[in-house]
Amino acid sequence: MIPWMSRFNAALAQIPHDLIAVVGRIAIGTVFWRSAMTKIDGLALKPSTFYLFENDYRLPLIPPEAAAYLATATELTMPLLIWSGLLTRVAASVLLAMTLVIEIFVYPNAFDTHGVWAVTLLYLMKFGPGRYSLDHLLGETLYGSRLPLGR
């Protein structure tokens, strides 16, 4: 291998998982939180939220009103878990499922955006939230042992 390329690759290998996990948690949580903020007014869903689920999103197998509440509740709670690093892998799995529903049924031509979300969520599912998380802090108490921190 070219010497400078070898040094460059070695330098990149030093990027800590904990840094990648924190940046990923902040970024992906923010995507879903901001979406939730567009759906609510105080403690209530906006009329426009119901309109979107009835007329634009039109998910199969679930009534629009239920879908509106379920999606908003998910977008409000899962980012909090991801940001705090509590049940991170579970929260990332829920958001990945939501991302797949959005990609398949709502915006099927937005794979460029949803693919980036999916990669971030898959990273957190595989490698976990890192040391700067409640999962790590509470690991022995909640799970009986420390969770794997990734590579």
Rank of each mutant, 00 (worst) to 15 (best):
residue 112 D to T: 11
residue 12 L to E: 07
residue 137 L to N: 04
residue 117 W to L: 04
residue 148 P to S: 15
residue 123 Y to G: 06
residue 1 M to L: 10
residue 43 L to M: 11
residue 116 V to D: 00
residue 101 V to L: 08
residue 145 S to D: 15
residue 43 L to D: 12
residue 19 L to M: 11
residue 65 E to M: 09
residue 79 P to Q: 05
residue 35 S to V: 02
residue 117 W to P: 04
residue 65 E to N: 11
residue 109 N to T: 12
residue 59 L to M: 12
residue 13 A to C: 08
residue 1 M to E: 08
residue 30 T to K: 05
residue 148 P to N: 13
residue 121 L to K: 01
residue 6 S to K: 14
residue 147 L to D: 04
residue 98 M to S: 05
residue 77 T to H: 01
residue 26 I to L: 15
residue 46 K to H: 03
residue 100 L to N: 06
residue 144 G to V: 09
residue 94 V to M: 10
residue 111 F to D: 05
residue 129 P to I: 03
residue 87 L to W: 12
residue 11 A to K: 10
residue 142 L to N: 12
residue 38 T to M: 12
residue 80 L to M: 15
residue 87 L to Y: 12
residue 82 I to P: 00
residue 21 A to W: 00
residue 15 I to F: 12
residue 121 L to F: 02
residue 86 L to Y: 09
residue 69 Y to L: 10
residue 55 N to T: 15
residue 97 A to H: 00
residue 144 G to D: 09
residue 8 F to T: 15
residue 125 M to Q: 11
residue 140 E to G: 15
residue 92 A to C: 10
residue 16 P to D: 14
residue 148 P to R: 11
residue 11 A to G: 07
residue 96 L to P: 00
residue 60 P to G: 09
residue 46 K to P: 02
residue 81 L to G: 04
residue 15 I to Q: 08
residue 110 A to Q: 13
residue 36 A to Y: 07
residue 48 S to K: 06
residue 65 E to P: 01
residue 6 S to W: 10
residue 80 L to G: 10
residue 123 Y to M: 12
